Structure formats: C-alpha cells, structure tokens
Computed example of a mutant assay.
Amino acid sequence: MPPHGHVIACKVTAENPDERFQPTSGGIQELTFRNTPNVWGFSIVGTSGGVHEFADSQFGHLFAWGETRVSSRRSLVLALKELSIRGDIRTTMEYLIQRLEMSAFRENQITTAWLDSLIAEKVAAESPPTDLAVTIEAVCRAHVHFTDRAELSQSASSMDSYHHWANL
C-alpha cells in the first residue's frame, strides 16, 4: 500500500537553544497541550512536575500529519504555538517554530547539514518581549474582570425585573 500523507515530528526538550542547546532543569508549573485530529503529542512530565538535572532533556514529542507536507508543517507550527509550558526550564519551542517557518524548510531545501549550519552561525531564537507578555496578561485579566462584572450586573438587572413583575 502506498504511503498516505506526510508526518513531521519534533521533540519537546528542556534545552536552551541560545547556549548551544545546553540542557536546563527545574519545575514546571503549567504544561498544556491539546491533541487534534492532525496533531498528537505526549509528555512524560505534567503540571507540577519537573525536569531533573540528571535526566534526559527530552520530555515529550509532537507529531503532525497532513495530506501534504505543507499542511502537516502548518499543523505542527500551530500546535507549537498553542503549546504552553511555564516553569523554571527553557525550551526549544520558539526555536522550532522559527525553523519550521524558514523559507528553506517550507520549500524543503534542507539537508542534514542545514540545522548544523544555523547552529554554527548562532541563529538565535527570538523570545517575545517581556513588556508584551505583561501587557497581554493585563488585558486578559481586565477582560475577565469586566466580563464577570457585566454578568453580575445583568444578573442583578434580571432579578430586579423579576421582583418588579412578581410584585404586580
């Protein structure tokens, strides 16, 4: 039977890509991943777990399937962007997203030496600016606060209307 579709996989590791993939260790406060019909992942560490300093730095895997290489790559990028890992460890998630988005990877113009050349050139992963993360958190909290207040206000308004009609 001929192959059907394409699969791209990546390792989920506790490594610092800016320091030549030096392993990192520490606790994990949040690890959230949602499997989809085209992406499957697993982790040997969960929330409130951690990566021990003498353990292997790989603690998970993601696999993305698609009818075409393009669709499997897109699914993997989306899964990596939705993957949430908060803790004391550094991961390669941003680094992987950037490599998957590079034109050389998208156009399948890579060899086994491609990644080694990027590492040698010290092409670093870019982390989002701290002030952006703080701003997004503040906006999210404000949204939750105002949504809760609006629901309370609407609920109180409904109760006033009920009491008005009940007293007629």
Rank of each mutant, 00 (worst) to 15 (best):
D18F: 03
R20W: 12
Q22M: 15
Q22T: 15
Q22A: 14
T24Y: 06
G26F: 06
G26Q: 09
G27I: 02
I28D: 00
Q29N: 12
E30T: 15
L31V: 04
L31T: 01
F33V: 05
F33P: 01
R34S: 10
R34N: 11
N35Y: 00
T36L: 01
P37D: 00
N38I: 00
G41V: 00
G41H: 00
G41Y: 00
F42W: 11
F42N: 10
S43F: 09
S43W: 03
I44V: 12
I44S: 13
T47K: 05
T47E: 10
S48I: 02
G50C: 09
H52P: 04
E53Y: 13
E53S: 11
D56I: 05
S57N: 05
Q58F: 07
F59E: 04
H61G: 07
L62M: 15
L62T: 04
W65P: 00
T68F: 04
R73D: 06
R73V: 04
R74Y: 03
L76V: 03
V77P: 02
A79F: 04
E82I: 04
I85Q: 00
I85G: 00
I85L: 03
G87H: 01
D88Y: 07
D88E: 15
I89A: 03
R90S: 03
T91N: 01
T92Q: 03
E94P: 04
E94D: 13
I97S: 05
E101N: 15
M102W: 08
S103C: 06
S103T: 13
R106G: 03
E107C: 12
E107Q: 14
Q109L: 13
I110R: 03
T111Q: 08
T112H: 11
T112S: 14
S117Q: 15
L118G: 02
L118T: 04
A120N: 07
E121C: 08
E121G: 08
V123A: 07
A125Q: 06
A125R: 03
E126P: 01
E126L: 09
S127E: 13
S127H: 10
S127Y: 09
P128V: 11
P128S: 11
P128N: 10
P129W: 10
T130K: 15
T130V: 15
D131K: 12
L132N: 08
A133P: 00
A133S: 09
V134W: 10
V134Q: 14
T135G: 07
I136K: 14
E137G: 08
E137R: 13
A138Q: 11
C140F: 12
C140T: 14
R141F: 05
A142K: 13
A142S: 14
H145T: 06
H145S: 08
F146W: 13
F146S: 10
F146D: 10
T147D: 15
D148F: 09
D148Y: 09
R149K: 10
E151P: 01
L152N: 13
Q154T: 15
Q154D: 13
S155V: 04
S157A: 15
S157N: 14
M159I: 11
D160R: 14
Y162A: 06
H163F: 14
